[in-house]
Write a protein that binds this DNA or RNA. Sequence first.
DNA 1: ATGAAAGCGCTAACAA
DNA 2: TTGTTAGCGCTTTCAT
Lengths: 334, 334
Amino acid sequence: MKVTIHDIARLAGVSKSTVSAVLNDNPLIKDETKARVREAMKKLDYRPNELARALARKQTKTIGLIIKEIDNPYFARITSGVYDYANKEGYTVLLGSSELKPLQEQETLNVLLSKKVDGLIISSLKDNGGFSHLLELKRRNVPFVLLDTIDMLPTNGVDVDNVQVGFMAVDFLLQKGHRRIGYLAGPDHSLHSVQRLQGYKMAHNRHGTPVQDAYVVPAGSYIEDGFRAGKTLTEMPATTRPTAVYCFNDQVALGAISSLRKAGIKIPEDMAVVGTDDTPLATAAFPPLTTIHIPIYEIGRRAAALLIKQIQQKENPLNEKIVLEASLVERDSA
Amino acid sequence: MKVTIHDIARLAGVSKSTVSAVLNDNPLIKDETKARVREAMKKLDYRPNELARALARKQTKTIGLIIKEIDNPYFARITSGVYDYANKEGYTVLLGSSELKPLQEQETLNVLLSKKVDGLIISSLKDNGGFSHLLELKRRNVPFVLLDTIDMLPTNGVDVDNVQVGFMAVDFLLQKGHRRIGYLAGPDHSLHSVQRLQGYKMAHNRHGTPVQDAYVVPAGSYIEDGFRAGKTLTEMPATTRPTAVYCFNDQVALGAISSLRKAGIKIPEDMAVVGTDDTPLATAAFPPLTTIHIPIYEIGRRAAALLIKQIQQKENPLNEKIVLEASLVERDSA
DNA sequence: ATGAAAGCGCTAACAA
DNA sequence: TTGTTAGCGCTTTCAT
């Protein structure tokens, strides 16, 4: 039933080692022998058992990717980028998700490690025991790349500058004359969200405008979260309610717009809305969304590239922090 | 550096087999011994090498999932369902995507097979050499579950009835009095899309309304595809242009609406729009989308459940076709 | 240019 | 109740 190098060896009249050598295209093997072996492989429809290879070689040609939410366009894009690059380089990727739960991040990490991935790309949750699991990786010399910028950690990472992102969005709004600006925050444990909030505050300071805590409302990352948070906004008295709102991502923005509209609030006249990510959603929204463009796919690609580079030269650990450019795209919602 | 059962055995003063037995929680081992072994494991921070286990056991506790597009909310939902169920059952899932390319489906399949997954869930492309690769799986006795209904194939599958889905949508439109109805079709090779088209035609027949080939315009599955296809619609003379359009999915519908609106066409007055899937997008769209609800997450879960069931009883191949219910959700776009 | 032998880390009879 | 002995399918020195 299952054919192994042993069978091939017998059929081709050579030894197992020769078959193995052919498998790895070892130049020492005579062409004629190679041909004969390969023919035997064809004939028996031989397929190498990658498990066995991995065990012997001590490398799986597999990388692990841990994201926060499977069901989130941002991570779908990241995943695309990672897959494209990894596959091109002959790596398989094992996808796991913490679904925003620190514990699950840890568990997922353990599973991937026991599957012996050659390295990991991680979108880590903040406050996960102070990133001790990442330090542990470092200690064990497991190559990994982060999808966040964690300054205090001497690790590889690919990301945009999210403080800058938040700043850009809110500065834009302030320049347009808004003085009461809301922030629909991302999920708990999201570093990106707190960094953008930091930018939000920085922009306020820069303009000498006081920050109002009530204007920062926790939302999340899904359309429904935006919808709910938008409702919170509509429930504020019109005279003190924000005249503009910056959202953690386009989905939240879309949800917010939807509940705002339902409440008869006009976008952008009564309330300007700025999103983040610049997903296709942004163009198709009504009104089309002003948003911060983030090169998501590219982040994924670069992360994979960096990881694979790190894997190939495991001896000397890199410490590259790649920071990609974000930019504001003005459309009609603000 | 890397600790194995051998190290544990030495430290605990037992044999490797005993350690292995403890690892598998074999009831024959005395509690006291277990305790001692486990302590040794803690002490050395032992982590079983799943690769080695898999090789010896001939099962990886890993299932493969092949989707069509990573970057598509439909498959994100499916993936969620599969992951949740699989993880709960102690399975890891290896995700691959054909990205709509039949060749890549084949390659992805090969990679997953060489990684020795215990079984597969596949959203297969149509016309892939007449599904010969699936028959091949059958022949090799690899458990798998399809995410499509392929009647001629004696295989496991979980899906809604997509002919029925198309019928439902178009029948609804016809009952509303529309006589010129468009169909924005899905990607090439999408079985779902052709099945829905079949339903589209059935509904027309049922109402004695002739089908106009020009009203069937190829779109795809992304917002941009809908946008482009919508434009095609706007370029038709207003007098012969469809008064309603049924879309392959909500994203396409959203894109279409966006280009229709740009052309000054009012939804639903000038053109009614019906989507498919009932993703959160549908609620947040403007106007909120009338669409066919599909229990996507549930499809994923059930597929995983069926596959795992099939894996556990590999001897007698099942042939279960699970058909879930779809339903029309009326909102404002039609 | 090819083969023999040992081993990767674990499981699985079978003994003891 | 635990240890011994073979593998699982492949790679990798080291001989020849």
